[in-house]
Simulated scan of single mutants.
Amino acid sequence: MTIPPAPVPLAPARSPSIRFAGLALDRPRIMAIVNVTPDSFSDGGERLDPARAVDDGLRFVSEGADIVDVGGESTRPGSRPVDADEELRRVLPVVEGLARRDVAVSVDTRRAAVARACLDAGARVVNDVSALQDDPALLPLVAGRGTPVVLMHRKGRAEDKYVVPRYRDVVEEVRDFLVARAEACCAAGVRAADIAIDPGLGFGKSVEENLALVAGCRRLADAGHPVLIGASRKSFIGRLTGVEEARRRDPASIWLAVEASRRGAVLLRVHDVAGTRQALAVSQAMR
């Protein structure tokens, strides 16, 4: 059986006029992960050759990805920061190669210098795990360019392994943080329609808190911004399932992506594009 030409709507009904980065959000949109790092938790070292990374990005598009997210700095717990020059050396050839083929590219970065060069090369979205807080030059850059952004919630930092206190109500606290960051971005000149929010599964949250955030996608979406969920292969899935090897966590990752979309998420950041695409189509058929 062939994969349908487009996933059918899974999230609660939305108007096709609601868009993010040029994409109508009347159905879930898939963001494919292309890490070009030596130390990412799942695929580190696989795409140190830019040609391989571009080929993988194009394959993901052929499998149904709407956006390809290119990252050059690992955020796994315990990883060390890289400088902007090294990050740019890793990501720029990949962004250029994909953008030349009219792929919608998101650059996963915390740094204005990296974002600027990638936007110049054709990237369309900035996806920042720090919600535009780590580099004070990044917010005015995206505001001035009119660039869509993904704002992610994060407690602690990678080098500190995100060791933080527990939450009283994780959904409410994460939502309040993301609303505050979105308001700060709007005040600086970013259009509200250009902001998506990501609760940051795995970034300083327990297993129970991660599950609560998936279950609470509708509460997050009620803030008025598209919700992105990135559960794919995360360590909390390993703790739930007993599966230690990250790349063997795709079945549970796919289930969480479908569940998140059913509860209101419209952007799904995944490693297994083809599997997620098929699961979304079957979920819709069952509905």
Rank of each mutant, 00 (worst) to 15 (best):
R263H: 13
D194C: 03
G230E: 05
V270I: 10
R219I: 05
R166A: 15
E159S: 11
R262D: 06
V273E: 09
P199A: 03
A281E: 09
A215M: 05
D176L: 14
V270N: 01
A215K: 10
A192H: 04
H225R: 03
V179P: 06
V171K: 09
L228V: 13
V170D: 00
S283Q: 13
V227S: 04
I195Q: 01
G202R: 00
A193V: 04
S261H: 09
G200F: 07
V174R: 01
V171M: 13
S206Q: 11
D272M: 05
V258E: 01
A252V: 08
L178M: 15
S235T: 10
V174E: 01
G216W: 00
I237S: 03
V164K: 02
E183C: 15
Y162E: 12
S283H: 12
S253H: 03
G200E: 04
E259S: 14
G242A: 03
A231C: 14
S261N: 14
E208I: 10
E259Q: 11
E208P: 13
S206D: 06
V273I: 07
R218N: 07
R168S: 14
A192G: 10
H225A: 05
K205H: 09
E172C: 15
L228A: 08
G216H: 02
E209N: 02
P199V: 09
G216I: 00
V179C: 14
Q278P: 03
L228Q: 05
K161R: 14
Q284G: 11
I229L: 15
V174S: 06
G204R: 01
R233T: 10
R239G: 07
L211F: 11
G200L: 10
L280P: 05
L211T: 05
D176F: 14
L228P: 02
F177H: 09
K161G: 14
P199M: 04
W255V: 13
D176T: 14
D176I: 07
P165H: 11
Y162M: 15
L178H: 01
H271D: 01
Y167K: 12
R262P: 07
V282T: 13
A265E: 08
E183M: 14
C186D: 03
G200R: 03
V170S: 01
I254L: 09
I254T: 05
S283I: 01
D169M: 08
A193C: 06
V214A: 12
Y167H: 15
G189A: 10
V174F: 10
D194M: 03
G202N: 02
G238P: 13
V266K: 06
A246Q: 07
D250H: 08
S206R: 15
S232I: 06
R239V: 04
Q284C: 15
L280V: 04
L213A: 07
G200C: 08
A212D: 12
L201Y: 05
Q284I: 12
A257Y: 02
A231N: 11
L256C: 10
S206I: 03
V266G: 05
A257P: 01
R168L: 12
W255M: 11
V270E: 02
E244N: 09
A215Y: 03
E259M: 12
D250V: 02
C185D: 07
L220P: 05
V266I: 06
G230N: 07
D272Y: 00
G264W: 02
I229P: 00
V207Q: 03
L240S: 08
V174N: 00
A196M: 02
L256D: 01
